[in-house]
């Protein structure tokens, strides 16, 4: 692992019990993702994208192999330590937004800061900044059921980046959005990537996203089939 790497994976295998047998979702997979990368895990359904993302996020455990995220070996950490890692250094963006329905935009975005025990004034200023960066200042007091799909996802992005994490994991973040909203969301994420030097890892098969990525890791049947570096992503021009 270099000083710049945020994720280092060596010989990762992930198996799920199915009936009396095991299904291997990830097969002897190794990769490194460096600080500030804007990376996509691309592949068809069942290729292992989400499983890999969940393991990187410490939401799931590897069956074999070594996974190190932000310098911490996940194999040796407890549930609590992984929760702390996520709380302090990671952000998550989900396909179906996963906003808490009873909270307003402000409260949803504020939640990671509350978990990090920040004081009220600091929280308010950070939330306002995050909400402003996704263009939702006028929706601060709205609940998720009053927002459009695009606005919900922007709220989820604000929640993911409000504590300025080192790594943001996004699972199909544009799957439920139309083309216009998808581009809008991706432009926001590209800007945040540039401004905050936050590393982004996407699990997607959406071509609109691919047009923004600087690195595309192709997965098929639990194996990396191709790892391309894109010097000039099309959509960024």
């Amino acid at each position: 692992m270099t000083n710049d790497s945020v994720v280092t994976i060596q010989n990762l295998v992930k198996q799920f019990p199915v009936g009396g047998d095991f299904f291997t979702a990830l097969k002897d997979l190794s990769l490194t993702i460096n600080k500030g990368e804007f990376t996509g895990l691309i592949g068809p359904s069942g290729s292992g994208k989400t499983t890999l993302l969940n393991i990187i996020g410490g939401l799931d455990s590897p069956t074999k192999g070594k996974v190190s995220v932000l310098g911490q070996a996940l194999n040796d950490t407890s549930h609590g330590e992984r929760a702390r890692l996520r709380r302090k250094y990671m952000g998550f963006i989900f396909q179906s937004y996963n906003l808490l329905p009873v909270y307003t935009v402000f409260e949803n975005v504020e939640l990671p800061l509350i978990l990090n025990k920040m004081d009220t004034d600091e929280r308010r200023s950070m939330v306002e900044q995050a909400v402003e960066s996704v263009g939702l200042t006028d929706k601060m007091d709205s609940r998720p059921n009053m927002l459009s799909g695009g606005e919900c996802q922007r709220t989820a992005i604000a929640r993911a980046i409000v504590h300025q994490p080192a790594l943001v994991l996004a699972d199909e973040p544009t799957a439920n959005l139309d083309a216009e909203n998808s581009h809008h969301i991706m432009k926001i994420l590209v800007r945040l990537n540039q401004e905050l030097s936050t590393s982004f890892i996407f699990a997607t098969h959406d071509e609109k996203i691919m047009a923004y990525l600087r690195r595309i890791i192709h997965l098929d049947d639990g194996e990396i089939t191709e790892d391309e570096i894109i010097d000039n992503p099309k959509a960024r021009d």
């Binding site: 996020g57 939401l59 549930h79 609590g80 929760a83 702390r84 890692l85 996520r86 709380r87 302090k88 990671m90 952000g91 998550f92 989900f94 179906s96 996963n98 808490l100 329905p101 939640l111 990671p112 978990l115 990090n116 929640r159």
Partner: peptide, 15 residues
């Protein structure tokens, strides 16, 4: 359930 998962994902421990 999904809310519980989200809380865990953003760093809340199970306890």
């Amino acid at each position: 359930g999904r809310e519980i998962g989200t809380l865990m994902a953003i760093g809340m421990t199970r306890q």
